[in-house]
Amino acid sequence: MKNKIYDIIIVGGGPAGLTAAIYGARANMNVLILHKENVGSLISAHKIDNYPGFPEGLKGKELNNLMKEQALKYGAEIINATLLDIDVYSTPKIIKTDKDNFLAKTIIIATGWSKNNSKKIKGEEEFLGKGVSYCATCDGAFTKNLDVTLFGQGEEIAEEALFLTKYSKTIKIFVNEKELKCHKKTYDALINNEKVEIITNSELIKITGNDFVEKVIVKINNEEKEIKADYAFLYLGTKSSLELFSTFANVDQNGYIITKDDMKTNIEGIYAAGDVREKSLRQVTTAVSDGTIAATEAIKYILKQKKKEA
Protein backbone atom coordinates (compact mmCIF):
# COMPACT_ATOMS: atom_id res chain seq x y z
CA MET A 1 0.00 0.00 0.00
CA LYS A 2 1.30 3.45 -0.86
CA ASN A 3 1.96 5.60 2.21
CA LYS A 4 0.78 8.82 0.59
CA ILE A 5 -2.61 9.99 1.84
CA TYR A 6 -4.54 11.88 -0.81
CA ASP A 7 -6.97 14.62 0.12
CA ILE A 8 -9.38 13.43 -2.57
CA ILE A 9 -9.45 10.20 -4.54
CA ILE A 10 -11.88 10.15 -7.42
CA VAL A 11 -12.97 6.78 -8.77
CA GLY A 12 -13.86 7.32 -12.41
CA GLY A 13 -12.38 9.42 -15.20
CA GLY A 14 -15.51 10.64 -16.97
CA PRO A 15 -16.93 14.19 -16.96
CA ALA A 16 -18.05 14.05 -13.32
CA GLY A 17 -14.73 12.69 -12.08
CA LEU A 18 -12.55 14.98 -14.18
CA THR A 19 -14.55 18.06 -13.22
CA ALA A 20 -14.20 17.13 -9.55
CA ALA A 21 -10.46 16.71 -10.11
CA ILE A 22 -10.15 20.15 -11.70
CA TYR A 23 -11.93 21.83 -8.79
CA GLY A 24 -10.03 19.84 -6.18
CA ALA A 25 -6.60 20.36 -7.72
CA ARG A 26 -7.22 24.09 -8.26
CA ALA A 27 -7.93 24.31 -4.54
CA ASN A 28 -4.45 22.90 -3.84
CA MET A 29 -5.73 19.51 -2.77
CA ASN A 30 -3.78 16.32 -3.48
CA VAL A 31 -6.05 14.65 -6.02
CA LEU A 32 -5.84 11.19 -7.55
CA ILE A 33 -8.13 9.87 -10.27
CA LEU A 34 -8.46 6.09 -10.59
CA HIS A 35 -10.11 4.95 -13.79
CA LYS A 36 -10.18 2.29 -16.47
CA GLU A 37 -8.81 3.54 -19.78
CA ASN A 38 -11.14 3.71 -22.78
CA VAL A 39 -14.24 2.95 -20.69
CA GLY A 40 -17.19 5.27 -20.27
CA SER A 41 -20.28 6.74 -21.89
CA LEU A 42 -18.57 9.99 -22.92
CA ILE A 43 -15.64 8.52 -24.82
CA SER A 44 -18.05 6.15 -26.59
CA ALA A 45 -20.14 9.04 -27.93
CA HIS A 46 -19.60 9.63 -31.64
CA LYS A 47 -20.48 13.32 -31.34
CA ILE A 48 -21.48 15.72 -28.57
CA ASP A 49 -23.27 18.79 -29.88
CA ASN A 50 -25.25 19.91 -26.83
CA TYR A 51 -22.33 20.75 -24.54
CA PRO A 52 -22.03 24.53 -24.06
CA GLY A 53 -19.10 26.27 -25.71
CA PHE A 54 -18.75 23.92 -28.69
CA PRO A 55 -21.31 25.09 -31.28
CA GLU A 56 -19.88 22.81 -33.96
CA GLY A 57 -19.88 19.82 -31.64
CA LEU A 58 -17.00 17.43 -31.01
CA LYS A 59 -16.32 13.76 -30.42
CA GLY A 60 -16.90 12.47 -26.92
CA LYS A 61 -13.31 11.30 -26.67
CA GLU A 62 -12.06 14.76 -27.64
CA LEU A 63 -14.10 16.41 -24.90
CA ASN A 64 -12.92 13.81 -22.39
CA ASN A 65 -9.28 14.40 -23.37
CA LEU A 66 -9.66 18.18 -22.97
CA MET A 67 -11.07 17.68 -19.47
CA LYS A 68 -8.25 15.27 -18.62
CA GLU A 69 -5.64 17.75 -19.90
CA GLN A 70 -7.11 20.46 -17.68
CA ALA A 71 -7.12 18.22 -14.59
CA LEU A 72 -3.47 17.30 -15.18
CA LYS A 73 -2.59 20.96 -15.73
CA TYR A 74 -3.70 21.76 -12.18
CA GLY A 75 -1.74 18.87 -10.68
CA ALA A 76 -4.18 15.97 -10.44
CA GLU A 77 -2.69 12.48 -10.81
CA ILE A 78 -4.30 9.80 -12.97
CA ILE A 79 -3.74 6.05 -12.66
CA ASN A 80 -5.27 3.40 -14.90
CA ALA A 81 -6.69 0.87 -12.44
CA THR A 82 -9.67 -1.40 -11.87
CA LEU A 83 -11.66 -0.78 -8.69
CA LEU A 84 -11.99 -3.89 -6.52
CA ASP A 85 -13.35 -2.56 -3.23
CA ILE A 86 -13.51 0.43 -0.90
CA ASP A 87 -12.95 0.35 2.86
CA VAL A 88 -14.82 3.45 4.01
CA TYR A 89 -14.60 2.64 7.72
CA SER A 90 -10.82 2.85 8.08
CA THR A 91 -8.99 6.13 8.76
CA PRO A 92 -7.81 7.11 6.20
CA LYS A 93 -10.17 5.35 3.81
CA ILE A 94 -8.72 2.61 1.55
CA ILE A 95 -9.45 2.19 -2.16
CA LYS A 96 -8.45 -1.28 -3.34
CA THR A 97 -7.52 -1.76 -7.00
CA ASP A 98 -5.67 -4.21 -9.20
CA LYS A 99 -2.66 -1.86 -9.21
CA ASP A 100 -2.33 -1.08 -5.51
CA ASN A 101 -4.27 0.07 -2.47
CA PHE A 102 -4.58 3.84 -2.07
CA LEU A 103 -5.32 6.02 0.97
CA ALA A 104 -7.73 8.96 0.99
CA LYS A 105 -9.27 11.50 3.34
CA THR A 106 -12.30 11.76 1.06
CA ILE A 107 -13.61 9.74 -1.90
CA ILE A 108 -15.74 10.80 -4.83
CA ILE A 109 -17.38 7.89 -6.63
CA ALA A 110 -17.88 8.79 -10.29
CA THR A 111 -17.82 5.40 -11.99
CA GLY A 112 -20.61 6.17 -14.43
CA TRP A 113 -23.64 4.25 -15.59
CA SER A 114 -23.93 0.88 -13.82
CA LYS A 115 -24.26 -0.98 -17.14
CA ASN A 116 -20.65 -0.03 -17.88
CA ASN A 117 -19.54 -2.69 -15.40
CA SER A 118 -17.50 -5.59 -16.72
CA LYS A 119 -19.31 -8.78 -17.68
CA LYS A 120 -19.47 -11.67 -15.26
CA ILE A 121 -17.42 -14.82 -15.69
CA LYS A 122 -19.44 -17.92 -16.61
CA GLY A 123 -20.50 -19.54 -13.35
CA GLU A 124 -19.68 -16.46 -11.25
CA GLU A 125 -23.25 -15.56 -10.33
CA GLU A 126 -24.36 -19.18 -10.11
CA PHE A 127 -21.73 -20.06 -7.49
CA LEU A 128 -21.56 -16.75 -5.62
CA GLY A 129 -21.62 -17.74 -1.95
CA LYS A 130 -21.06 -21.35 -2.97
CA GLY A 131 -17.33 -21.17 -3.53
CA VAL A 132 -17.13 -17.91 -5.46
CA SER A 133 -16.09 -15.00 -3.30
CA TYR A 134 -14.69 -11.49 -3.67
CA CYS A 135 -13.05 -11.40 -0.24
CA ALA A 136 -10.54 -13.89 1.15
CA THR A 137 -10.27 -12.11 4.48
CA CYS A 138 -14.05 -12.48 4.83
CA ASP A 139 -14.35 -16.14 3.80
CA GLY A 140 -10.86 -17.49 4.39
CA ALA A 141 -11.83 -19.38 7.53
CA PHE A 142 -14.18 -21.54 5.43
CA THR A 143 -11.28 -22.77 3.26
CA LYS A 144 -9.54 -24.88 5.90
CA ASN A 145 -7.76 -27.80 4.19
CA LEU A 146 -9.33 -26.88 0.82
CA ASP A 147 -7.83 -26.12 -2.60
CA VAL A 148 -8.37 -22.47 -3.48
CA THR A 149 -7.76 -20.32 -6.53
CA LEU A 150 -7.43 -16.56 -6.86
CA PHE A 151 -7.77 -14.55 -10.07
CA GLY A 152 -6.56 -11.01 -10.65
CA GLN A 153 -3.52 -8.77 -10.34
CA GLY A 154 -1.86 -6.45 -7.84
CA GLU A 155 -1.27 -5.92 -4.16
CA GLU A 156 -4.82 -6.75 -3.10
CA ILE A 157 -4.80 -10.30 -4.49
CA ALA A 158 -1.28 -10.86 -3.13
CA GLU A 159 -2.26 -9.83 0.39
CA GLU A 160 -5.45 -11.89 0.24
CA ALA A 161 -3.49 -14.96 -0.90
CA LEU A 162 -1.03 -14.49 1.93
CA PHE A 163 -3.93 -14.38 4.39
CA LEU A 164 -5.26 -17.68 3.01
CA THR A 165 -2.00 -19.46 3.85
CA LYS A 166 -3.29 -19.65 7.44
CA TYR A 167 -6.20 -21.85 6.34
CA SER A 168 -6.12 -23.30 2.84
CA LYS A 169 -4.49 -26.54 1.73
CA THR A 170 -3.24 -25.23 -1.63
CA ILE A 171 -3.38 -21.71 -3.11
CA LYS A 172 -3.09 -21.07 -6.83
CA ILE A 173 -2.84 -17.43 -7.93
CA PHE A 174 -3.72 -16.88 -11.59
CA VAL A 175 -2.42 -13.65 -13.12
CA ASN A 176 -3.30 -12.45 -16.61
CA GLU A 177 0.11 -10.85 -17.16
CA LYS A 178 3.73 -12.01 -17.22
CA GLU A 179 4.19 -11.49 -13.48
CA LEU A 180 2.34 -10.77 -10.25
CA LYS A 181 2.85 -7.08 -9.53
CA CYS A 182 2.99 -6.43 -5.82
CA HIS A 183 5.41 -5.26 -3.16
CA LYS A 184 8.60 -7.33 -2.95
CA LYS A 185 8.08 -8.29 0.68
CA THR A 186 4.63 -9.71 -0.07
CA TYR A 187 5.86 -11.45 -3.22
CA ASP A 188 8.80 -13.08 -1.40
CA ALA A 189 6.47 -14.32 1.35
CA LEU A 190 4.24 -15.94 -1.26
CA ILE A 191 6.90 -17.67 -3.33
CA ASN A 192 8.59 -18.99 -0.19
CA ASN A 193 5.37 -20.62 1.03
CA GLU A 194 5.03 -24.23 -0.14
CA LYS A 195 1.23 -23.91 -0.33
CA VAL A 196 1.38 -21.16 -2.95
CA GLU A 197 1.75 -21.40 -6.71
CA ILE A 198 1.67 -18.37 -9.03
CA ILE A 199 0.52 -19.04 -12.60
CA THR A 200 1.06 -16.21 -15.08
CA ASN A 201 -0.35 -15.52 -18.58
CA SER A 202 -3.67 -17.01 -17.51
CA GLU A 203 -7.33 -16.16 -18.01
CA LEU A 204 -10.35 -17.49 -16.14
CA ILE A 205 -12.89 -18.87 -18.63
CA LYS A 206 -15.48 -20.66 -16.51
CA ILE A 207 -16.32 -21.82 -12.99
CA THR A 208 -18.08 -25.19 -12.72
CA GLY A 209 -19.48 -27.55 -10.11
CA ASN A 210 -22.71 -29.00 -8.77
CA ASP A 211 -23.94 -27.55 -5.48
CA PHE A 212 -20.55 -25.97 -4.85
CA VAL A 213 -17.51 -24.97 -6.91
CA GLU A 214 -15.52 -28.01 -8.02
CA LYS A 215 -13.40 -26.88 -10.98
CA VAL A 216 -12.20 -23.80 -12.81
CA ILE A 217 -11.47 -23.69 -16.53
CA VAL A 218 -8.41 -21.52 -17.14
CA LYS A 219 -6.59 -20.60 -20.34
CA ILE A 220 -2.86 -20.71 -19.61
CA ASN A 221 -0.53 -19.62 -22.41
CA ASN A 222 -3.50 -20.00 -24.80
CA GLU A 223 -4.20 -23.57 -23.69
CA GLU A 224 -7.40 -24.34 -21.75
CA LYS A 225 -6.93 -26.42 -18.60
CA GLU A 226 -9.37 -27.83 -16.07
CA ILE A 227 -8.19 -27.33 -12.50
CA LYS A 228 -9.65 -28.73 -9.28
CA ALA A 229 -10.80 -25.96 -6.96
CA ASP A 230 -13.04 -25.68 -3.91
CA TYR A 231 -13.00 -21.89 -3.92
CA ALA A 232 -12.51 -19.17 -6.55
CA PHE A 233 -11.67 -15.73 -5.20
CA LEU A 234 -12.17 -13.09 -7.89
CA TYR A 235 -10.33 -9.77 -8.09
CA LEU A 236 -11.21 -8.99 -11.68
CA GLY A 237 -13.44 -5.94 -11.39
CA THR A 238 -16.56 -7.97 -12.22
CA LYS A 239 -18.58 -6.70 -9.27
CA SER A 240 -21.68 -4.74 -10.22
CA SER A 241 -22.36 -1.29 -8.77
CA LEU A 242 -24.87 -2.91 -6.43
CA GLU A 243 -22.26 -5.39 -5.15
CA LEU A 244 -19.55 -2.72 -4.86
CA PHE A 245 -21.43 0.07 -3.19
CA SER A 246 -24.34 -1.46 -1.27
CA THR A 247 -21.99 -2.62 1.50
CA PHE A 248 -21.66 0.97 2.71
CA ALA A 249 -23.89 3.33 0.70
CA ASN A 250 -27.63 3.63 0.28
CA VAL A 251 -28.39 2.40 -3.24
CA ASP A 252 -31.52 1.73 -5.24
CA GLN A 253 -32.43 -1.66 -6.74
CA ASN A 254 -30.32 -0.97 -9.82
CA GLY A 255 -27.18 -0.13 -7.86
CA TYR A 256 -27.35 3.64 -8.27
CA ILE A 257 -26.08 5.52 -5.21
CA ILE A 258 -28.65 7.65 -3.43
CA THR A 259 -27.45 11.13 -2.43
CA LYS A 260 -28.92 14.49 -1.65
CA ASP A 261 -28.28 17.54 -3.81
CA ASP A 262 -24.92 18.06 -2.09
CA MET A 263 -23.66 14.68 -3.46
CA LYS A 264 -23.08 13.34 0.05
CA THR A 265 -23.69 9.66 0.67
CA ASN A 266 -24.74 8.30 4.05
CA ILE A 267 -21.04 7.90 4.94
CA GLU A 268 -19.10 10.98 6.02
CA GLY A 269 -16.42 11.97 3.53
CA ILE A 270 -17.84 9.83 0.71
CA TYR A 271 -19.55 11.49 -2.25
CA ALA A 272 -21.10 10.29 -5.51
CA ALA A 273 -21.27 12.24 -8.76
CA GLY A 274 -22.48 11.70 -12.29
CA ASP A 275 -24.33 8.76 -13.77
CA VAL A 276 -23.59 6.49 -10.80
CA ARG A 277 -26.11 8.55 -8.80
CA GLU A 278 -29.81 7.80 -8.63
CA LYS A 279 -31.37 10.67 -10.61
CA SER A 280 -33.78 11.42 -13.43
CA LEU A 281 -31.41 12.88 -16.04
CA ARG A 282 -28.00 11.67 -17.14
CA GLN A 283 -26.15 14.10 -19.43
CA VAL A 284 -22.59 15.40 -19.66
CA THR A 285 -23.78 18.74 -18.32
CA THR A 286 -25.43 17.18 -15.26
CA ALA A 287 -22.33 15.06 -14.61
CA VAL A 288 -20.14 18.17 -14.70
CA SER A 289 -22.50 19.88 -12.25
CA ASP A 290 -22.37 16.88 -9.90
CA GLY A 291 -18.56 16.82 -10.05
CA THR A 292 -18.38 20.51 -9.18
CA ILE A 293 -20.63 20.10 -6.15
CA ALA A 294 -18.95 16.89 -4.93
CA ALA A 295 -15.47 18.43 -5.08
CA THR A 296 -16.62 21.61 -3.35
CA GLU A 297 -18.20 19.60 -0.53
CA ALA A 298 -15.09 17.41 -0.20
CA ILE A 299 -12.88 20.50 0.03
CA LYS A 300 -15.11 21.97 2.75
CA TYR A 301 -14.97 18.69 4.67
CA ILE A 302 -11.16 18.51 4.50
CA LEU A 303 -10.73 22.13 5.61
CA LYS A 304 -13.10 21.58 8.55
CA GLN A 305 -11.13 18.48 9.60
CA LYS A 306 -7.84 20.41 9.42
CA LYS A 307 -9.34 23.17 11.56
CA LYS A 308 -10.42 20.62 14.19
CA GLU A 309 -6.93 19.12 14.26
CA ALA A 310 -5.19 22.49 14.57
Rank of each mutant, 00 (worst) to 15 (best):
I107G: 03
K172E: 07
V11C: 13
V216R: 04
A158H: 07
E159C: 04
R282Q: 12
I258G: 04
A298N: 02
K185Q: 15
G209P: 08
L42E: 02
E309T: 15
D211Y: 15
N176E: 11
L72E: 14
I48L: 07
N64P: 05
T137Y: 10
G57Q: 00
V288F: 14
E194V: 10
V251A: 00
A310I: 13
K59P: 12
A25Y: 00
T292N: 11
N222W: 09
T91V: 15
I79G: 09
K307Y: 14
K122Y: 08
G53K: 10
A45L: 12
G255K: 05
K215R: 14
N201T: 05
E69W: 15
G12Y: 01
L281P: 12
K215G: 03
G13V: 03
T91K: 15
Y167F: 11
V39Q: 13
K36P: 09
E160S: 05
E214G: 12
I95Y: 06
I94K: 08
D211T: 15
G112I: 01
T106S: 09
L58I: 14
G152N: 03
G14C: 08
G24T: 04
S246D: 07
G75R: 01
H183R: 15
P52I: 12
A229N: 11
N117S: 15
R26C: 05
L84A: 02
G255W: 02
R282C: 06
Y301I: 04
C138E: 13
N117A: 14
K279N: 07
L242S: 02
S280P: 14
S41E: 14
N30G: 10
M29D: 08
N3Y: 14
T170C: 04
E297R: 14
D188W: 13
A272W: 11
E224K: 01
F151L: 02
A136G: 12
D100T: 06
I302M: 15
Y301H: 14
N116H: 10
T111N: 01
I157K: 02
A81C: 07
E160I: 05
K304H: 13
G75W: 06
T97V: 11
K195C: 06
D252A: 07
K185N: 15
E155P: 12
L150V: 00
S114I: 11
I257M: 08
I5V: 13
G24W: 12
K144L: 08
N80H: 12
N254P: 00
H35R: 15
I78M: 13
N145I: 11
G255T: 01
V132K: 04
G291N: 00
A71V: 01
F142W: 05
A189H: 13
L18T: 01
Q70F: 09
C138R: 03
K239Y: 10
L242C: 04
I8L: 05
N201Q: 09
T238W: 02
K239E: 05
E155V: 05
P55G: 03
V39P: 03
V196G: 02
V11K: 10
L150M: 12
D49R: 11
E124N: 13
T247Y: 08
C182V: 03
N101R: 06
T265K: 00
